[in-house]
Nucleic acid binder design. Structure first.
Lengths: 233, 233
DNA sequence: ATCCGGACGAGATCGCTGCTCTCGGGAGTG
DNA sequence: CACTCCCGAGAGCAGCGATCTCGTCCGGAT
């Protein structure tokens, strides 16, 4: 099957060059400032030629979006794989740290993924797979600990409303198999906290508030790990 | 001093019309799609005339940014004022609910404030005042409870590193007077959680995860109120 | 009452953008 | 060898932000 014709190879190569040039321009000026004509100039093409490879500017951005989701997802998964399985709190910190690290190294791509959505732009279905890789890495930390019976019982929370409870059971089925709704709930809260914190740091809302970002982030994620009930190894 | 000349009145009025038209267009298509020429057409001006009122498109956006910060800040403060002072947990929920409510009613303006910053655009100093109103409302809930000695002691956290501790003391001085560093730390974590959750909901990251957003949000903020140590009245 | 400076709106213009269409050449297929 | 189809170039369109010039008219000072 990989009997590629010369045409196919050339096409794949130029597609890659276009994406690479677009990535560089996004890193420099952000996604909203991405100019298809500038990308074309970078790769030595005339602007109309780029349309042979991407039907529109949005499709080019979508391709980069998928790549970025896979990239941060892979970073999270690698961090997970590199951390001993018997220390759930350390695993949580490792994954969240990997997320922050990737975000700092790819500010504009992170903004593309988790910042304001482009108005009128609806993320195609094919993005949800790659998008869930990061979340899956975070979820597996909690799910693994829950399955192993390692979670410390949280402070007794008031019972969740039945409707929400049912929803969380459904979430557990796909993302945190074996976790009770209460754990799913806490995991979701911690999940939003992580990205809220990273976004605040990247988008400048921590300016004049916290300067030692590394320490603060580590402490915050550790605290949220405690909130979820992940025991320190 | 308010002896406005006809010119000044006309100028203020047209400035307001331009901002109002721009607000409408932002509500419709978001800030990145804001076209100065379209705004000019809306108010019956030629595009170059708008430059008599705003030196550039960015300055127009900045004006709207300040208005939006003040708007969400006022919403938060009003929610605070309308809630009995003796129930810290309820006050926290009220303020966070007001934030979410405003965000849902002004999606694109919220995205302008808390989404991806416009690349190359540096928020002028004059935005930081209005920007801190929301944060101030949230902070005062915690600070008031702390001053009143109402905070339940959190689970014993490991001592904060001295450098971070000093920073948090400084933060307490300006935003949470009378609160110990540990409380400031928890408040900051809860703060990022609130905006992380709102942003995730607005930017579509809760799609296919949680559908009953209202209940989930209320439970999440209640849980974070507990995390901070705010007692239920 | 007159006069002059400054504010203001219109219009033209520049360089840029995303996107479409047409044309010509060359590579792969029969 | 002939045919098809892919691909790049180029021209062109409408729209954009921004600048400049040119009349006009308002308002305060003389």
């Amino acid at each position: 099957m990989p009997a590629k014709t010369a045409r196919e190879r050339a096409r794949a190569e130029i597609t890659g060059e276009i994406k690479e040039a677009a990535r560089r321009r996004i890193a420099a000026q952000g996604a909203v400032g991405l100019s298809l004509r500038a990308v074309a100039r970078d790769v030595g093409l005339v602007s109309s030629a780029v349309y042979r490879y991407f039907p529109s500017r949005d499709d080019l951005i979508t391709a980069l979006l998928v790549d970025a989701y896979n990239d941060i997802g892979r970073a999270a998964e690698e961090a997970l794989a590199a951390t001993p399985a018997d220390d759930p709190a350390a695993r949580w910190r490792a994954v969240t740290r990997a997320i922050r690290h990737w975000a700092l190294a790819h500010r504009h791509e992170y903004a593309l993924l988790y910042g304001s959505p482009v108005p009128g732009y609806r993320a195609p279905e094919l993005t949800i797979g790659p998008a869930s890789r990061v979340t899956g890495a975070l979820a597996s930390v909690v799910a693994d600990a829950a399955r192993a019976g390692d979670l410390t019982a949280g402070s007794p929370a008031p019972a969740l409303p039945p409707a929400l409870r049912d929803e969380l059971v459904r979430v557990a089925d796909v993302a945190l198999p074996g976790s009770p709704p209460d754990v799913v709930f806490r995991a979701l809260v911690a999940w939003t906290q992580v990205f809220g914190l990273v976004s605040f740091e990247l988008f400048g809302h921590l300016e004049n508030v916290v300067e030692d970002r590394v320490t603060f982030f580590d402490r915050a994620t550790a605290a949220m790990a405690g909130f979820v009930g992940l025991p320190a190894g």
